[in-house]
């Protein structure tokens, strides 16, 4: 009893922080979204979002693409990591986290110089008489940027979930007649579900709301929700009310996505993180 009381007090500073910097701003956003410039109640802002449905669709599509690619790339890596000896696991995990020690913007800039018309990759391809390819300022470049930046967030929860799978369970599956593919579909994927759900959320949510990646790697032609919102607050089309409405819509999308993944994985969710 004493312990739970003390721990409740220990959480107090963060609760206060949350109240001031998350809950209150949230209400401010809702307030702005539902009022016009003069402060009168209106649904006009929300209705106006419809005009930007193509941007919303593109954001969701590119984020979904990036999430799927991260999952496909991250699953074998997570499995491989979880099978290593403990001391090697730590080294490999550090190597995976290593790029994150560098600034996010810097890393994305690096990709710009790599992908440019006169960039490193095109020069290299040129040696073999290929190209130059048009890589920068495409939707593909944006997805690449998302995958590159968010892949560790997919690998980590997958790895965590899979360390709980004992080798003998995989051996039992093979023993009972599973070939490699069946072991994957019948045992590994079902048991890694909590990690898959967390990984999807942790990649999809930042990917769907990013604006830096799309601006730097997507040029002007691949506007995402994040860019749109930024334009309302800091850009030329300055409109706090519309920006707030868009933020609200994005939040709803994210919440829907999260409730989807957690319903797909109800009781196993606890104990993952």
């Amino acid at each position: 009893m004493l312990r739970s009381k003390t721990s409740r007090w220990a959480a107090a500073p963060y609760l206060l922080w949350m109240a001031i910097f998350i809950v209150v701003p949230l209400f401010i956003v809702i307030w702005y979204a539902l009022t016009d410039a003069s402060g009168a109640f209106t649904l006009q802002n929300l209705a106006e979002i419809g005009r930007y449905s193509s941007v919303f669709a593109r954001s969701l599509l590119l984020a979904a693409e990036a999430t799927v690619i991260c999952l496909v790339l991250g699953f074998p890596v997570g499995y491989f990591l979880s099978r290593l000896r403990a001391n090697k696991q730590h080294i490999m995990l550090m190597l995976i986290m290593l790029p994150m020690w560098m600034n996010f913007l810097l890393r994305t800039y690096a990709w710009m110089t790599l992908l440019e018309k006169n960039g490193l990759i095109n020069k290299l391809l040129g040696l073999f008489g290929i190209g130059p390819l048009n890589m920068i300022n495409t939707a593909g470049a944006v997805v690449l940027g998302m995958v590159y930046n968010y892949l560790p967030y997919m690998i980590l929860p997958l790895y965590t979930a899979m360390t709980k799978i004992d080798d003998s369970i995989i051996e039992a599956a093979q023993d009972l007649g599973c070939n490699t593919f069946r072991t994957l579909t019948r045992v590994l994927i079902p048991l890694a579900k909590p990690g898959i759900a967390t990984g999807i959320t942790m990649v999809f949510v930042p990917a769907v709301s990013t604006f830096i990646i799309s601006r730097m790697l997507g040029g002007g032609s691949n506007l995402l929700i994040g860019d749109l919102i930024e334009l309302q607050f800091l850009g030329n089309s300055y409109n706090l009310n519309l920006g707030s409405a868009m933020s609200l819509a994005l939040m709803v999308i994210v919440l829907l996505c999260m409730s989807f993944t957690s319903s797909f994985d109800e009781e196993e969710m606890e104990g993952v993180m």
């Binding site: 003998s168 369970i169 039992a172 023993d175 045992v187």
Partner: peptide, 16 residues
């Protein structure tokens, strides 16, 4: 293993 006519009972049960 999956092609052999033997089955194993594991030390730690290894149930799914």
């Amino acid at each position: 293993p999956y092609k052999r006519q033997v089955n194993t009972v594991f030390q730690k049960y290894a149930l799914f």
